[in-house]
Write a protein that binds this DNA or RNA. Structure first.
Lengths: 340, 340
DNA sequence: CGGCGCAGCCAAAGCGGTTTGGCTGTCCGC
DNA sequence: GCGGACAGCCAAACCGCTTTGGCTGCGCCG
């Protein structure tokens, strides 16, 4: 059933029906009600594609989520981010179009989204050093929000980011305060901006206290349980093993915990662990007492906020950029204690 | 830049340009090359919305992913399923439109997708008992594929499912063979079809061997680490604690493992664990030797297959239904041993 | 040499909405 | 009694593409 048929059914013109449904004031309240009822009864809904074409707005937001080539893995934080953003889109009547693309092909897909007008805006996930997507999107003039930041570029775009450097500096300071000196960093892949910043915070804290900095105690890897396990296992076998781990994600931290157990040690007594916690739904960090001492920031809330900002930009794209750097909480859990 | 402008630029008619780009044979090879080059150079790409309207095909597939009301959690298997499906869509030039909706609102969203013609087909996630989505989609005549099945309905639709009953029956048999009698089931929510079937398999195996069946040893909960932990913790404190756990997801199993450790027991020696493993990218089940003995089936492969089937139905929707029930592997890991 | 077939291009009619710019009729004020 | 304002409806022009159904001109055959 299309608008023409439906309006004939009602004995009205397409114009009036469209306006009645669209909530415009030019139709009598009586007529509007009649139209609404008939729409419900006959199951008429305006065709989205046609409406998109006519209005020039697609009522859709694009997400391009990268999937790592090596291990074919998609970062589990996306699910929660998407859930957050999805809430906002649903409330505003927007769709979310998603592409899952291999690392490195994001540029092409973003370009296509911009060029074909299939979306009104995009979210940039997982920004990297010198990320080419940002200048490209700016050139195309399509609204976008970055989840994270890019180093060494002019910050003329919208973004929501956690203060990763500060979070990991504070976490490192905590471990130093507890007397730890050999503190290991189990980080995400180094070309990711968040990993770089976390490492900066870690190094800055060690440096400020004159604690030793070794490459032995720094690992960058994909954020899987397995990589956390392997990294910790290797480090625990060193002649001078670390007494504390600083880990970039809860899922890696679970791997680290496993390595600690396997080595016959006890987490929180023999070895301390601080992790970043994205507050994923299916991976709560304990109950009242957090399992892990953690720097904590909800990735789902970030998803919500990115979506809000993006939708806000669509009507007026030339407003000054919205930029938010979130402080993460540092919560004390059962995984840290004084250095042995 | 639109088709009209672009074709004027080339001194050709819109028709010819459209055909050249579309790969139709009515244009000279020479002209086609010229058009392609110009398109690349001027960054022209046909507007997807307009193309969708003209062809009647949206070139998009809808996914509606439910998010549990209680704990606001989105099942982590979706990320991997989506990644698999996304591969197929990308190769076929399809988009994926996703809605994240609270439990129970899926019906409304599916209806809207069907009615507004914003997608050419949909994937039904997480089917439940008497799921109203299936008859509704059938009535609307929009192609769809169910990831899973629904009990007690005529199986006249397309689906890809794991043989959950058989997988858990085999797993239970394994534990019984090892001498275990008090075997606990830590399952997903009971209204989910897969959870129901797994329970059936578990009960059938116990029943066949005359092993005791107690409600004390059966839990249905959301599949988070926390719920796995709490369930196992509670059961281990029973007067007659289980000697083995059968768990519905690796993430829950990690919680179970934690509870076992906390109780001062060792997994694989004091307590056995068998889990279902969806083979999520970031949660590999160990290396050469699996960490957990597991029934194993790749949810990502299921995503790929569902997408393939769905795309195949779009050209001929009236073909007999594609139905696949996958056998899952039973892999032996370090988490099982003879009953103490 | 006339006619037919075909390669190669084009004009125009959709697809299903939204929106601009009327048009009618009623009501009110002077 | 007349003019203007306004409520309420409608016709028609888009939006940007695809696709049907020509049209032209050339080559080939009888």
């Amino acid at each position: 059933m299309n608008l023409k048929e439906f309006s004939e059914l009602l004995g009205l013109s397409p114009t009036t029906v469209s306006r009645a449904l669209g909530g415009y004031p030019e139709v009598k309240e009586d007529t509007r009600r009649r139209v609404h009822e008939a729409a419900l009864q006959h199951g008429y809904r305006p065709n989205r594609r046609a409406a998109a074409l006519a209005t020039g707005r697609a009522m859709a937001i694009g997400h391009v989520i990268p999937i790592s080539l090596n291990h074919e893995m998609v970062n589990p934080v996306f699910a929660d981010f998407i859930a957050g953003a999805g809430e906002i889109y649903a409330a505003a009547g927007y769709d979310m179009t998603m592409s899952v693309v291999p690392d490195g092909e994001e540029l092409r897909v973003h370009r296509q989204m911009a060029l074909t007008g299939s979306v009104d805006g995009v979210i940039v996930h997982a920004p990297r050093e010198n990320d080419p997507r940002i200048p490209m999107l700016q050139e195309f003039g399509i609204p976008f929000v970055v989840h994270g930041r890019v180093p060494d570029t002019e910050l003329t775009y919208n973004f929501v980011d956690v203060d990763n450097a500060r979070a990991f500096r504070r976490a490192t300071d905590l471990l130093l305060d507890l007397g730890h000196r050999r503190i290991a960093l189990v980080n995400g892949l180094q070309h990711m901006d968040f990993a770089r910043r976390r490492r900066q915070g870690y190094l800055a804290a060690l440096d400020a206290r004159g604690a030793p900095i070794t490459s032995d105690l720094q690992v960058s890897a994909e954020m899987s349980e397995r990589m956390g396990f392997l990294a910790a296992q290797r480090m625990l076998a060193l002649p001078a093993p670390p007494t504390a781990f600083l880990v970039s994600s809860l899922i890696m931290a679970i791997g680290v915990r496993r390595a600690i157990h396997d080595a016959g040690l006890e987490m929180g007594r023999d070895i301390s662990v601080v992790t970043h916690d994205d507050m994923l739904g299916y991976l709560a960090n304990g109950d009242e007492v957090p399992l892990f001492t953690a720097t904590r920031s909800s990735v789902r809330a970030a998803g919500r906020r990115c979506a809000e900002i993006l939708l806000g930009r669509i009507p007026n794209p030339d407003a000054p950029p919205d930029q938010e750097v979130w402080e993460s909480e540092l919560v004390l859990g059962a995984s840290t204690g004084p250095a042995p």
